[in-house]
Simulated assay, not measured.
Amino acid sequence: MDIAEEKRLARQVAAKRRAEAHAQLMETAGSSLALRGLPVAAGAARTVSGFIPYKSEIDTVPLLARLSREGWRTCLPVVIGADQPLLFRAWTPGETLAPGVWDIPIPPETAAEVLPDVLLVPMLAFDRQGYRLGYGGGFYDRTLEKLRAFRRVWAVGVAYAAQEVEAVPRGDHDAPLDYVMTEQETFACG
């Protein structure tokens, strides 16, 4: 079986596991992330990108709200096109959002474009080595490759603990995570 087929099958299983975890934990998981805070020190980074939950993704908005109160600049990713890295626009929790690609809420076009130091990365599955299974569009992999080519950027995968697998099928272009945060723990990858 080739890597694309292996990932396709893994996505089916992972999506089901994530949906089950979400049904049980959606009310408390986001607050658990916020209580713990980021594993990256504020002195080393000042801008963090989160995401508005799509389908059964864990909620990063409570964490973004905490970070904003602590002086971090917060932003959200914007899909600008197929096979393109993400763009990031400034956004503070509570500000107006507009529908983006797949109706995922994004900051309005008038919001300032920013470059994040820390990316909170959604996923379907993850392993302890720091690899994640996404939706297959490669948006975060391309974005991390672009940003890491010229500056230090931390990738923090955010998911439910139930999304952990022994090993994620991976290809040459899959960008590793630095940390993973779940409702139960935060750990360094590798």
Rank of each mutant, 00 (worst) to 15 (best):
D2R: 09
I3Y: 13
R8L: 14
L9H: 14
A15Q: 14
A15F: 05
R18A: 07
R18M: 10
A19M: 09
A19C: 09
E20W: 06
E20G: 07
E27I: 04
A29D: 00
L35W: 12
L38H: 12
P39E: 09
A41I: 11
G43P: 05
R46L: 10
V48Q: 05
F51D: 02
F51W: 05
F51H: 03
P53T: 02
K55N: 08
I58S: 01
I58E: 02
T60H: 02
V61R: 06
V61E: 02
V61G: 02
A65C: 08
A65H: 10
R66C: 03
E70G: 09
C75H: 10
D83S: 13
A90N: 12
W91L: 13
W91R: 11
T92I: 15
L97P: 08
A98V: 15
L115W: 08
L115Q: 13
P116F: 00
L119I: 02
L119S: 00
V121K: 01
A125L: 09
A125Q: 07
F126E: 04
D127R: 11
G130M: 06
Y131V: 08
R132L: 00
L133M: 09
Y135C: 04
G136D: 12
G137F: 04
F139C: 11
F139L: 08
E145Y: 06
L147V: 07
R148K: 15
A149Q: 05
V153I: 03
W154G: 05
W154M: 06
V156L: 06
V156Q: 05
A161N: 03
A162M: 06
A167F: 14
P169W: 11
G171T: 13
G171V: 11
D172K: 13
P176K: 12
T186I: 04
T186K: 01
A188V: 09
